[in-house]
């Protein structure tokens, strides 16, 4: 198959890589947990995509994500903001507000009808508004993403957690469990706190008419629904939600090559 470029998104939790064809469609993709040695992991993943698609060693590569600087041979290195902006605009084909819930941070990106990033907001230094927060708490409760939505539907919303700090929230949850509060109420409280936090990030850029979601957090259908409800706007998950950044990087590599 003809491959235009490869994009790699070296995130804090997972590394994603895609190879795209000249139309920008994803021809091959790969995702793995981030290893300590990002350089060799990136090289291996890129090599894997090359052999899977039969593309040569001169295929242009672009990198993004926290480990972007560790990717050797990356022609162009761009920030996650720009990469997600490009990828999301390509997938949605219109102006949009993207909410990306990643492992290390959550970002909200407003993309104009021209495809340019107009404005963005990210959570501050603490883990409270990140995918890691939900992961830690759900792991503690031994619940998978797929179990969340039905639980949220069942919950009455009678409990709330006051702490959105990951560490304090965890101990608050332990005391709720000790008081015999049903697990679905706790799951609801945690997601509501999260939606509030990410919701205010969205509102920093002004109330959108709709939101699109990407990143690992978009796999949590319950969260997507709750966030939409909290903001009173429709929330849609982008196709290839976990690969939006890698796709944006690949599109950048392709346009650099084409001299655009």
């Amino acid at each position: 198959m003809t491959i235009a470029s490869i994009g790699l998104d070296a995130g804090s939790t997972t590394v994603k890589a895609v190879a795209i064809n000249p139309e920008g469609q994803i021809a091959a993709r790969v995702i793995e947990n981030t290893k300590p040695d990002i350089s060799s992991q990136a090289e291996r993943l890129i090599e894997g995509l090359r052999s899977e698609t039969g593309s040569g060693p001169d295929t242009t590569v672009s990198a993004t994500g926290y480990g972007r600087k560790m990717v050797r041979n990356a022609g162009k290195v761009i920030t996650e903001i720009t990469a997600h902006g490009r990828g999301a605009f390509f997938l949605a084909g219109k102006a949009l507000t993207l909410v990306d819930v990643g492992g290390q941070d959550s970002k909200v990106i407003r993309i104009a009808a021209s495809g340019n990033v107009e404005d963005f907001a990210m959570n501050d230094k603490c883990a409270a508004g990140t995918g890691r927060f939900l992961e830690v708490i759900l792991h503690r409760l031994e619940i998978g993403y797929d179990q969340v939505e039905p639980m949220l539907d069942r919950a009455s919303g009678s409990v709330s957690i006051s702490n959105t700090c990951t560490v304090f929230a965890e101990s608050e949850i332990i005391s709720l469990l000790a008081r015999g509060v049903p697990v679905e109420e706790i799951v609801y409280a945690v997601h509501a706190a999260f939606a509030e936090r990410v919701g205010s990030l969205v509102m920093r850029l002004g109330r959108p008419s709709a939101i699109h979601m990407s990143g690992g957090g978009a796999r949590n259908a319950g969260l997507v629904k709750l966030l939409g409800k909290h903001l009173c706007v429709p929330a849609t998950v982008l196709p290839e939600a976990q690969f939006v950044g890698a796709l944006g990087a690949a599109l950048t590599a392709a346009s650099t090559r084409a001299g655009i």
Binding site: Y66, I78, T79, I81, T82, V117, D119, F120
Partner: peptide, 10 residues
């Protein structure tokens, strides 16, 4: 640094 770079990219 990420914010600064992303800001410049806009």
């Amino acid at each position: 640094e990420l914010r600064v770079k992303a800001f410049m990219e806009t």
